[in-house]
Each structure stands twice: as structure tokens, then as C-alpha cells.
């Protein structure tokens, strides 16, 4: 199957600290890929490299066929991104921010798409509220909207559900599954193992920058094993 993300010995060093160490990874088209790892394992750094926000120290990464180090803006044109710390600009209202994103991404029929997201995520009443005055959950809804509003074939999301209540989590999880069933690809990083086990088709486990495991969810669950058992056995050794 076609690879949407391909990394070879991808490494990121900050001085003496190696945040990501020679990670080689393939993410197939249509998969819901979960990058798992404890805090500080290098998940966020990995997403930042894959979206061209930071440059790799060595190795390379191709996203949708583009080299992220050579054409980071090309990559960001094609993908949707939600960072770990959601950060819509403080003094824009929700609607203004989405118009700002829409104008930069040249999205046609923006208002219709925005209305669909307002209905789906139930936050249309906040459209004229400043981003700085939003609750964390509503900010996360806004970031989710800006990441998917241009209908990207790949979205990279850092901790996608962490600010949502259980009802919204269910709704968003269902959206993720249906999104990938349409042939799109989702790359999520999380440390919520139950969520990953529930929705991911493939997983990789990262620990102190090293890739410890990569495989399908079926292979993880072989022999009635849970993802958490595999995760803990790898991370604790």
C-alpha cells in the first residue's frame, strides 16, 4: 500500500539531548496511525519535524511525497495540523480566525464548511468570542476545525482528545474513524492508550527518542494482549 509518511533515520538533537533518534517509519495511506509514548518521549518533536516546523538534525522525512526539509510550506499546504498547545491568535474571534485560515488556504465555500463544523462540534454560539476568552475545550474544537476545514488527505494531531468531555471524545473518535475510511490518513500522537487501542489501525511506540515498536493493531492484540501490556513491557525494560 502507498506510503503517506516515510522517514529514514530521522533524528533531532538539541545540543547534547537527542529528542528523536534515527527513527525509520512508514505510514500507509488510509491508516489511523497512533504514535505512542510517555511524556518527553519525542512525539511532539516528531510531529514538528513531519510538518516542517523544525528541521531534522539528520535523516530525512517525506510527507505526501514531499521532503519536509526542502518544502515545508508545500507539506503544510497539503496537511492539517493540530499542535500540542492549541494557540489560536488571542484577539481574533473564532469566526475571524477561521476566515484568516480560509483566506490563507484559499478555501472555497468557507462559510458553509464553517457552519458544518460549528454544528458538528456544537460551538456555533462562540463564533464572535475572542479566542483568548475561550475554554480549553472550545479552543480544541477551533483547532480541530482549522485542521480539517480544507479537507486534507493527511492530518497530524498532537493529543487530539485531551481537552474534550467524554461525549465530545466519542463524537470526535467516530469522525476520525470515518475520515480514514474515506481514504484519508490520520497521524495522532497520544499517551492515552485506551483511545489508541480503540481507534488506531497501526501504532508505533517511542521512548526517549527511540522507536521501540511499530505494527498493526491486530499484531498488537495477537494472543489477547492489550496495547497497554505491550507499551508497559517495552517502556519499563
Amino acid at each position: 500500500m502507498e506510503s503517506i509518511i516515510e522517514t529514514k533515520s530521522l533524528t533531532k538533537k538539541y545540543g547534547d539531548l537527542t529528542a528523536v533518534n534515527a527513527v525509520t517509519l512508514n505510514v500507509r495511506k488510509g491508516s489511523l496511525f497512533g504514535l505512542l509514548g510517555p511524556n518527553g518521549s519525542g512525539k511532539t518533536t516528531m510531529i514538528k519535524m513531519l510538518t516542517g516546523q523544525i528541521l531534522p538534525s539528520s535523516g530525512n522525512a517525506h510527507v505526501l511525497g514531499l521532503d519536509v526539509a526542502i518544502d515545508p510550506v508545500g507539506v503544510r499546504t497539503l496537511v492539517g495540523i493540530i499542535p500540542e498547545q492549541e494557540s489560536p491568535p488571542s484577539f481574533l474571534t473564532v469566526m475571524e480566525y477561521l476566515e484568516f485560515v480560509g483566506d490563507i488556504r484559499k478555501i472555497p465555500d468557507l462559510e458553509q464548511k464553517v457552519d458544518w463544523w460549528f454544528d458538528f462540534l456544537e460551538y456555533g454560539d462562540k463564533r464572535n468570542v475572542l479566542c483568548k476568552d475561550l475554554s480549553r475545550g472550545t479552543r480544541q474544537k477551533l483547532m480541530l476545525t482549522q485542521a480539517f476545514i480544507h479537507n486534507p488527505e493527511l492530518a497530524l494531531i498532537d493529543e487530539p482528545l485531551i481537552n474534550f468531555d467524554p461525549i465530545m471524545q466519542d463524537k470526535v473518535k467516530a469522525f476520525f474513524v470515518s475520515y480514514t475510511k474515506q481514504g484519508n490518513t490520520l497521524f495522532i500522537s497520544t499517551h492515552l492508550l485506551e483511545t489508541a487501542e480503540e481507534i488506531c489501525s497501526e501504532v508505533a511506540i517511542l521512548h526517549v527518542g527511540n522507536l521501540l515498536y511499530t505494527g498493526t493493531m491486530e499484531s498488537v492484540k495477537a494472543g489477547n494482549r492489550h496495547l497497554s501490556d505491550l507499551f508497559l513491557s517495552l517502556v519499563r525494560t
Partner: peptide
């Protein structure tokens, strides 16, 4: 003073 480039880094901008 209102933002850093990280606000724009989600978007296709140099």
C-alpha cells in the same frame, strides 16, 4: 509582540 511564528507554523506560510 502578539505572537511568534509558531502561530503561523500550522499554515502554509514562510
Amino acid at each position: 509582540m502578539f505572537d511568534s511564528f509558531s502561530v503561523y507554523a500550522l499554515l502554509p506560510l514562510h
